[in-house]
């Protein structure tokens, strides 16, 4: 079985680590430090490589966005012109500006894929609950997580039924109307199910959901992760902040 982060680290430390790293990266303003920061997700990928599809998709998505943004941003960053792409000046500052953004964005996305990508939504709920987030929020979170799959199935069924009757997603009035009905039907079913769930909760005496499971065990590796990553982030920030 391929090694993945969840076999070594508790979900809570993985979440905290993600926030720590992302927060640190957000504060970096120097391209060289940003490049250095990329070493951490790269190291993570080397230790626990995700499948190609898993990492390629979000990275492709984000980089296409960055490319388009670059085309519209670089010409407007004032500075020393390196060359002229037709009438448009490509400045050194512009390239550095976009390079900074691209490195930071990719670093965080890659980190998230490796450290959070394999997390079950239910585990996420438990982790946040054990991290002592407010109970009303946790109740809402757990209930939402629980019903996403159920509603996804209902949506898929309805969509199939529509397709069997000739529905095609198109930019026509008929198709858009069908989309509206699909959304309406999904919302209606969700609300009707919500009423039944409320009844079920009444029968068991409470509204809202607690997490009883104790699969999360904080180990020495988790403490080590917090300390190690904390130190690495501190070093990056000392070097990278203006």
């Amino acid at each position: 079985m391929k090694p993945c982060m969840m076999t070594f680290f508790d979900a809570r430390s993985r979440m905290l680590a993600t926030f720590m790293f992302s927060g640190a990266v957000a504060l970096i303003q120097d391209v060289r430090i940003a490049a250095l920061a990329c070493a951490l997700p790269l190291l993570s990928i080397a230790c626990a490589p995700p499948s190609f599809a898993r990492i390629a998709r979000p990275l492709l998505h984000i980089n296409v966005l960055f490319l388009l943004t670059a085309l519209m941003t670089i010409p407007f960053v004032p500075g020393e012109t390196l060359w002229m792409a037709g009438p448009i000046p490509v400045t050194r500052e512009g390239l550095l500006f976009m390079a900074l953004i691209t490195l930071k964005g990719n670093a965080v996305v890659a980190w998230c894929v490796v450290w959070l990508g394999s997390m079950e939504p239910a585990t996420l709920g438990h982790a946040l609950s054990r991290l002592r987030l407010p109970t009303p929020f946790i109740r809402l979170l757990m209930s939402t997580i629980r019903y996403i799959d159920v509603l996804q199935e209902e949506y898929a069924c309805m969509r199939m039924a529509m397709r069997a009757r000739g529905f095609k997603p198109q930019l026509t009035r008929l198709s858009l109307r069908a989309h509206g009905l699909l959304v309406g039907a999904l919302l209606l079913r969700s609300l009707e199910r919500a009423d039944r769930v409320a009844d079920a909760m009444k029968c068991r005496g409470h509204h809202g959901v607690y997490a009883a499971t104790e699969t999360l065990v904080w180990r020495a590796a988790d403490t080590a992760l917090m300390i190690g990553l904390g130190a690495a982030c501190a070093l990056l920030l000392l070097g990278g902040m203006p």
Binding site: R146, R196, H206, V209, Y210, A211
Partner: peptide, 22 residues
């Protein structure tokens, strides 16, 4: 419909819920 009655993400959460509340 069991989906209406099982409103927690994992099995243990759901089954332990009633006793916890008692």
């Amino acid at each position: 419909d069991s989906d209406d009655q099982l409103f927690c993400p994992t099995v243990l959460d759901d089954v332990a819920f009633g006793p916890l509340h008692l």
